[in-house]
Design a protein around this nucleic acid. Sequence first.
RNA 1: GGGCCGCUAGCUCAACUGGCAGAGCAGCGGACUUUUAAUCCGCGGGUUCGGGGUUCGAUCCCCCGGCGGCCCA
Length: 551
Amino acid sequence: MRSERFRPPSPQVGVVRSIFGSRHASNLVSTPGIRFDLRAGVSVPSWLVSEQPETNAVTSDDDLPEQMRVRREKRARLLERGVDPYPVEVPRTHTLREIRENHPDLEPDTATGEMVGITGRVMFIRNTGKLCFATLREGDGTELQAMLSLNRVGETALSDWKTDVDLGDHVFVRGEVITSRRGELSVMADEWRLTSKALRPLPVAHKQLAEETRIRQRYVDLILRPQARNTVRSRAAVVRSLRDSFDRRGFVEVETPMLQTLQGGAAARPFVTHSNALDIDLFLRIAPELYLKRCVVGGIEKVFEINRNFRNEGSDSSHSPEFSMLEYYEAYATYDTNATLTRELIQEAATAVAGSHVVTLADGTEYDLSGEWTTLSMYESLSDAVGEQVTPDTSAAELLALCDRHGLEVDPKTGHGKLVEELWEHLVGDHLHAPTFVRDFPVETSPLTRQHRTKPGVAEKWDLYVRGFELATGYSELVDPVVERERLEAQARLGAAGDDEAMPVDEDFLRSLEYGMPPSGGVGMGIDRLLMALTGLGIRETILFPLVRPE
RNA sequence: GGGCCGCUAGCUCAACUGGCAGAGCAGCGGACUUUUAAUCCGCGGGUUCGGGGUUCGAUCCCCCGGCGGCCCA
């Protein structure tokens, strides 16, 4: 219902947004539902200005839950007393981490004489009669205790502390580094002040937040759960490791278009948007492949991109409509050398995040990524699994019979390639746990891959399976522009026949190939999946702000 | 798309067969100069996801809708 209220009627959007584009924000004043642009003298409904729900706006305090009302009243009282609950700057001298590092092992009940100014969010608070305790925390998770005693800060500052400070507030404390009688490293305050008043209470720290709340309010999840903070840092470490690995090997990082005029590079349904300037529909990219290959044609012979792809498909524990992808291409590489480089990239990322090629997953089990990895051939491993020979010549009818015998329901119109892959996933892929390369796929389902140099009917393509899911895929790329055109035209015919995952013919891409692309290898790898592989977390944990339906 | 489960205080959860809507933490008031999920005394806090129905009476049963989760396709 609420989303209905904020959805703009599409025909007006472009017009009104362009009005805003030419006006400075300070010309806007707000009233509860409507905002006026003073200079233009036009009124604009609030849904064009802000997509935030109005439910929790400051307006009517009577409707607020008690605890939020209390905190707002505290803020207002502070302002009346001339105290800014959100000061611009405070004289911080040390981070909490620095103080911990400088004083690793003081005896209990020590006074160092060192005066410091510290800041942090109040995560724990104990207000006793004449001595108060608070545990402060800073961004990296480091905590330090602040103490306020009557004889150091005086009666007013102590009672202000008790009445003004709530769990979750940010505070500044200036005082002496000491240890408490219990031995807790602390700062004994001479003065304190609020640095940011929290208007919402933190959820109780000792109960797990509901999964939905963790995702919808990730900032709260990050405040409360160390694992959430670690995941963000692990992801950053993995991405940095990949970039370093490529940099050391002489690869160049590029950024290719996310707004594209044609969908291409993968079989997937795209998101569609519209360009007002060009008055044409654009697609959010489903893969960067066709642009990276243009780079190789142009002479950027070792090239990679780490960025977002968008696929207008399902959203569940292993799929996100928006996901990060690594693709890299290398001239004179093949799917053999690719496999080695991909293994090294993953092993180096494991070292960056876990310090070892053996990683510890979220459930506490270990996963071994070390050494060389198993390699299977798709047709041979499938033949072994079904107990009879399956080759590129096996007919669709025979494959359908195999599906039937193994309890696999498939559309009887399915062709050879998809049947082989379905059977393989069901009988072999689902049972793979250790890192495994599966090689030599049906040509039919690999339109951008070259035929195997000796084995007829298969393509030089591998998939890498880690912990049973597909982590990466690599190819010896098809660079013959004539064959490529045949493949793309076949895809386009599928598209015309109603397959909305099929690619149209990208004439500019074909033109680039016609200038000559050196023999090359290419690889695609899901960054979110790499994180999942290295940490054992679900995709909605590895993505900071996954797409969720509006509240 | 189908099936099942869930939605109750700021948070995490109770509430027997349909009978006064509760607890812990958090909050408010008070006591306490060494607390670590402190302790003690007192108090407040609810559109039980929304709408409709059955009933003397609905958090509970029925219908429609919303959001989420799990399984299947």
